[in-house]
Every structure is written in C-alpha cells, then in structure tokens.
Nucleic acid binder design. Structure first.
Lengths: 247, 247
DNA sequence: CGGAACCTTGAGGTGTATCAATGCTTGTGG
DNA sequence: CCACAAGCATTGATACACCTCAAGGTTCCG
C-alpha cells in the first residue's frame, strides 16, 4: 500500500504552513483544539487523492508538494481548475461529495481533519471561518484571473502567464526579490501544463521552444528554467509589467 | 444626473432577495442593524457601476437587474469573469480597490452598505460571514465550471452552455420545472455573450443561427428564446443531461 | 539493452478570428 | 409621417492559430 496515514499530535507552532493555512489566525488555544483532531496523510506522485463525485469525509491543507484540481468531460477532455500549493485548502465545508478530481503531481503531505469535527470547530471558532473566507476570496480572484488567460490569451501568452506565476511565487518563497534572474524547476509535465492552459501538449512544447529561442527563458533539460528578466516575461504574458510588483 | 441614491429604511423582511442574499441567515435583530446602514442606488443600463482600480467604499447586493464583472487587457481584449444576478454580492471585504469593472447590463438597483460599517457588522455577526463564505464558495464553483467552458469547449458547446445556464435559472425562478419548453429573453447582447465565452460576436451570431437551424432553440426576434427540450440543449453543451437535474 | 514515460518537431487540416458588407430595429428631428 | 442615423445582428470570404496525426528523440530505470 502506498498510502500512509499518521496520527501525529506534533506541535502546530512549528508547522511550515502555520502562517498561511486555514489555521493562520488561530491563537494557542484554538491550535490545541485543532491538534486534537488533525492527522497527516501522504500521497505519492501520480496518486489520485480524491475522485470527483466521491464522498468527502475529510478536509485539509496541503503541507508539502503540489496537487491539481481537474474536471473531466465524458469524452475525456480535461481542464485543470486549480493548482494546490502548500497551505492551500482542500474540501468544502457543508458539501459531502467532491466536485473535482484532486491528483498529487509530486509527493504530497496533507494535514487532514474529519469533516464533521472540523465543521463543528469552525462554527465555534470565528478565526477559522474568517481565514477560510479570506482564502476562498483569494482563490476566486485567482480563478477569475485564469478565466482571462483561458478566454483571451494566445498560446504564447498563456505559457508566459503560467511561467510568470510560478516564477514570481518561487521568488517570493525564496525571498530573492524580482530584480535578478529567477531559477526554478517546473512542477508540471507538458501535459499538465496543457490541461491548465486549455491547449494541447504539442502546442505547449512548441511555445516553450519558441520562448527559449527568443531568450525569454533559458532551459536546462526539460524542467529547469531560468528567467533572466521577469519584466520581459510578464510583457510576453500580456500583463502590465509595472503593476506594482516590481517595487 | 442619471444616478439615483435613496436612503430607505424600508423593511428587509419584504425584500425580494431576502432569502438568497448575504443577509439570508440573519435574524430579526441582525436585520435591524443592517437596515440602519443600508441605502439603495439605481443604475441605468450601460452605466459602469465600478471602475477597476478605483477605491471601493461600499459593498452591496444586486436587488434587481443584471450586471457584469469584466477584466480588460491593455490592448482592449476583454473577458467577462462573472454575471451578477439579483441577490449576488458585489465587493470584497478587506480590500479597498476594485479588481474588476462592474457594468449594469439592464437597469440595476443595488442595496449598498458603506464598507467600514459593514466590515464591523460582519465581525460581530457570524451569520453574515457564514453566508458570505457560502456564497463565495458557490461563486468559486461557478468560476471553475466556467474555466472548463473557456478552456475546452467548442464555440457551439460554449453557446449551448450559456443558454442552458440561463434557461435553467429562469425555469427555477418561474417554478415551471424542466419537463416542458422553457421560454426566456436573453439578457445579454451578442457582444456581451462573446466576452463571456471568449469568442467574437460574429462567431456567437453564427452558432446561435446554427442551433436555431438545427431546432435546438427557437428564436423570435434576436432575444426571445424558446428551448423545446432542455435535455437536448445540455447534450449540445457537452454536459451530462442526467446529472440529477431532470428529477 | 530494451522499454516506458516524457518531450520535440513536422506536415497538414480545421475552427475560429478578421475584415467587410448588408440587414433589421428603434428613436429622433425635419 | 418620412428620412436618417445609431446600435445591434447577420452573413460571406479569407487568413491564420492551434489541433491532429505521425515520427523520432531523450532520459531514466529495470
């Protein structure tokens, strides 16, 4: 069996996603209540965490790794509708069947809560509900930004948009700022990128090659990317490069 | 001046969106507190309610009419990212500049609250925050469903998807059920539909003509639509017609 | 070494965009 | 009451971005 469930009452204070996850606003007592009901689960790269339509008896946060949220049509066309990074929340309080497939793209560790106890705790702990509202509003903004990408951008702009988002997130995590070159590894296959961008994997491959030829990005192997000038990349994405990001 | 602001402490109990809006869960006392700070504003068809980037000093609910949420790129490409119907909420607590343009498509009446007093009330009234969370989660689901439409559906499927959504909403409002023909007026121009679907207005026009020729819909004039068989329309949309809707 | 997974590149086809002309409604002013 | 303009919609011809199908390359692992 590749699935691993650990009951672990380790200290939330030391958790790497403590300040960003659904528990971000909780104070010490509230964390203790959460620790009582939490447990960890691990998933291997490629594993499906949740099947669309299945009963959802838990909710939780991604602690490490990357997962995707995808929808599939009857004829097999698929569209990724969300990218789950560490601290992102999975599951919807008040609903019991899953609306999307959740798939681990890399190895993933999740901090889970059984749904019912979590809902009870949410009702008695405004800090959790407040934080969840804030996170949901952020996700809604991200989804709407992505609607512009899907609906109106060219293939080249779509690729540049995706790379720009990953590059900026990585720069903010590694605290390097946006003035120098940004280096990162692509966490997605060409096919997963295609599913995110509403393209075919061939088009993704061609456009990445084109951006490389034009020196917008440098590639070492298939996944290791260097962005020499994030402003240039954002121009290629059709975004306003002076939107207040480059302070 | 076409803009009309009315201070109106009329009874929330009689409000047409009482049971669906952000105040849906409020009890009598809470409604009184809301009545203290609410005011109505009217907008004419075509008027911009909020400009993207502007200071947002109020939030509110659509009481009647239809508004759109749109994003625009520097070169003028636009994508609609939301359709605001009666009871939908506008504005984001905790943010002070607007992220999108909000435009009245028909004449619109909104029930507004100044942002600060509303935020205060939200913190002291869990029922409001709870309802807002629920509504935001619903909007997120709708946005993700739309991502599939934008990313993976053909022009014909896109049109069918939009018509199917409007048709089903109208059927649910008029309590007619989904067994017989559904009749409604399109609340959007061809151009607005194109902006919603990530198409050009010419393609929208062609696909509507095609669906008409194939008897999937009947048209009287340019806006008055009859859907003889909603199941057929949902098939055209690529949706599973027996997804539990046709009970 | 052989196979599997992933990626790249090419050739040709197709769906939608673009450009352009025309039609239909509605409202306005002479 | 007609003439005209403005806004919205339809239809046609053509262009091109992206998809589809196909072959071959790279990397990794048993």
């Amino acid at each position: 069996m590749t699935l691993n469930t650990l009951v672990d009452h380790s200290n939330c204070e030391d958790c790497p996603i403590r300040h960003r996850a659904v528990c971000a606003r909780c104070d010490a007592d509230e964390l203790i209540a959460l620790e009582e009901i939490k447990y960890y689960r691990s998933f291997e790269a490629g594993q499906t965490i949740i099947w669309s339509g299945d009963q959802m008896n838990f909710v939780g946060s991604v602690v490490s790794g990357i997962a995707t949220l995808t929808q599939t049509m009857e004829d097999g066309r698929t569209q990724m509708v969300g990218l789950l990074l560490p601290s992102d929340f999975v599951g919807r309080p008040g609903r019991d069947s899953a609306a999307y497939d959740v798939v681990a793209t890399t190895d993933v560790v999740m901090c889970c809560f059984r749904k019912k106890p979590f809902e009870d705790l949410m009702n008695s702990t405004p800090h959790i509900a407040q934080r969840l509202l804030q996170m949901t509003l952020d996700e809604l903004d991200a989804a709407r930004e992505w609607m512009l990408v899907l609906g109106r951008k060219t293939a080249r702009e779509k690729i540049a948009s995706l790379l720009s988002i990953i590059a900026r997130r990585d720069a903010s995590v590694s605290q390097k700022g946006l003035s120098g070159p940004i280096v990162f590894d692509l966490p997605l296959t060409r096919e997963a990128m295609a599913d995110y961008l509403g393209l075919t994997l061939e088009t993704v491959s061609r456009q990445i090659s084109a951006l490389k030829k034009d020196k917008v990005i440098l590639l070492e192997g298939k996944r290791h990317v260097t962005v020499p000038d994030i402003g240039r990349l954002m121009e290629e994405a059709g975004d306003d490069a002076d939107g207040g990001f480059l302070v």
